[in-house]
């Protein structure tokens, strides 16, 4: 690998671009292919290779693909997965830290300024806005998980309404079965379909018997992890 290529890979990753480093496994030749269509490097990129690379980037899956004159290794570089936490509550503190360790870019949304403070969430992106305003610009995509933790309908409901029709790979909402049943009723009245509402994991988290905020954070992060890998497990 040329040092310039590595520098470019690191700079593009820092800039959170979606791209792949393609390596010809026999010659060692390399190119960088961007999801937005550009490519740069020594490998001649035909339509077949570009298609395979774009699929790999979308599936977030590095791997080897056959090229016209030998195997190519496609190493995918995508921005970190995102976790959007609604509610800067106690559980959000360990969850933000654990998710960060697991590689997520964490954003905490809470309109209540005294909750979402840098002291309580060091190093975490904080948004002091109502979720219906905060969510659209964050544009939850298929590499985003959303968890609501306030169990205050005034804050959680608009957040859920903003993400139920998004591509987010995980949507979870804290609250007991009773709380969740009431939430389902409200969302149904607001015009969401059973399928859309059925995307919500509620009560949130895997059933671990978790009690403390940190334990509940473990159960939530475990369920997010499970949702992330579900597609692959079914395929395997």
């Amino acid at each position: 690998m040329k040092t310039e290529t590595l520098q470019r890979v690191l700079a593009d990753r820092e800039a959170k671009r979606q791209f792949a480093l393609v390596t010809h496994l026999e010659t060692g030749g390399q190119s960088i292919l961007y999801l937005d269509g550009a490519d740069e490097g020594e490998i001649e990129v035909d339509t077949g290779l570009r298609q395979a690379v774009e699929n790999a980037i979308r599936d977030d899956k590095s791997g080897t693909v056959p090229g016209t004159d030998g195997d190519m290794f496609v190493e995918v570089f995508n921005p970190p997965l995102r976790l959007l936490i609604v509610g800067a509550v106690h559980i959000a503190q360990p969850l933000a830290r654990m998710a960060s360790v697991a590689g997520y870019d964490v954003t905490v949304i809470d309109p209540r300024g005294s909750f979402a403070t840098d002291d309580r969430f060091p190093g975490v992106t904080l948004v002091n806005e109502w979720p219906d305003e905060a969510m659209p610009p964050l544009d939850p995509d298929r590499r985003t998980a959303v968890v609501t933790l306030t169990h205050d309908p005034k804050i959680d409901d608009p957040a859920l309404a903003a993400v139920l029709r998004s591509d987010a790979f995980y949507i979870g909402a804290l609250g007991s079965r009773k709380t969740h049943a009431a939430r389902v009723e409200r969302l149904t009245e607001s015009g969401f379909t059973a399928d859309e509402i059925g995307r919500i994991h509620g009560p949130v988290g895997l059933s671990l018997g978790a009690v403390s905020p940190a334990e509940i954070a473990v159960s939530i992060l475990a369920q997010v992890t499970q949702a992330l890998h579900d597609k692959e497990r079914v395929a395997a």
């Binding site: 970190p80 830290r97 960060s100 360790v101 697991a102 590689g103 190093g123």
Partner: peptide
């Protein structure tokens, strides 16, 4: 607590 960013780097 402030070391979060560094920890993330390892997992990535």
């Amino acid at each position: 607590m402030a070391a979060d960013a560094g920890v993330t780097a390892i997992s990535k």
